[in-house]
Design a protein around this nucleic acid. Sequence first.
DNA 1: ACTGGATCCTGATCGC
DNA 2: TGCGATCAGGATCCAG
Length: 277
Amino acid sequence: MPELPEVETVKRGLNELLKKHEAKIIGLKTSKEALRFPYPKGLKNQLENKKITSIDRRAKYLLFMIGDGPTLVSHLGMTGNWRELQPGENQFLKHDHFRLLLESGHQWIYNDSRRFGFLDIVDPVDLKTSKWFHHLGPEPTTSKEFDENYLFAKTRKKQAPIKNVIMDQTIVVGVGNIYASEALFLAGVDPKKLAGKVSKEECRKIVVSISKVLKAAIRLGGTTIRDFKSAGGSEGYFAQNLQVYGRKGESCFQCHTTIQKSVLAGRATYWCKKCQK
DNA sequence: ACTGGATCCTGATCGC
DNA sequence: TGCGATCAGGATCCAG
């Protein structure tokens, strides 16, 4: 489900909720089944009676900040999501795995049908060097580091297709399978092109396109393919802006050539063979 | 050292 | 309509 724009959308939704009421945790419930990893030990002790001060994001991770206390890290995997229940509401769903019970009577619920997501507790002082974050590349929409020189250097001597490389979170974070195809269409670069053969000028276009497409998607609340919703419950409207993803056999909006689909590193890849070289 | 495939899991959709 | 096969927005692990 969630690439950078969707995670950012969930983050913003939760922060909106924080403006309406405090989020002091007075209890929590975990499902019996583990998520991708077992729940961390001491979760209850670390979170109970603490107040969530803000929700941040790094790459595709949500960070529930608790003043100078421990940070709750949430990765959504493919199908993870957060929603709020109002005081007294009890509309629980299949695959609700984790609930934060707040003093206000609201509940924040983590639902994840495939359980590829996970939760962890990290000391905020160690955040950057923790096992989840130490290897991550720069943020594509906010980091100055991510420019054409950076991408050009990182792609030299690489034999993998450029699409695989921009989805590599150690190169640049946040780009998943949808936005990789979309950004390469915008850049006019064939996703199958070997990264080492991508020119400096193409790197410039790719960098600009990644940033552009992610920002545009954030503005529209992400992309809802089947079930993505913000924490406030609304769908994302970027799906109507998709140029190639999911459009196999349909006509390119730019040149009317038929959109192609193939599989790269096990992931569906869409492109226009006329617009992308 | 890289690269791609298998893998974790459930549910929706495809194709016969 | 029914049912098995395939596919899905992520990321790690492992073999070649």
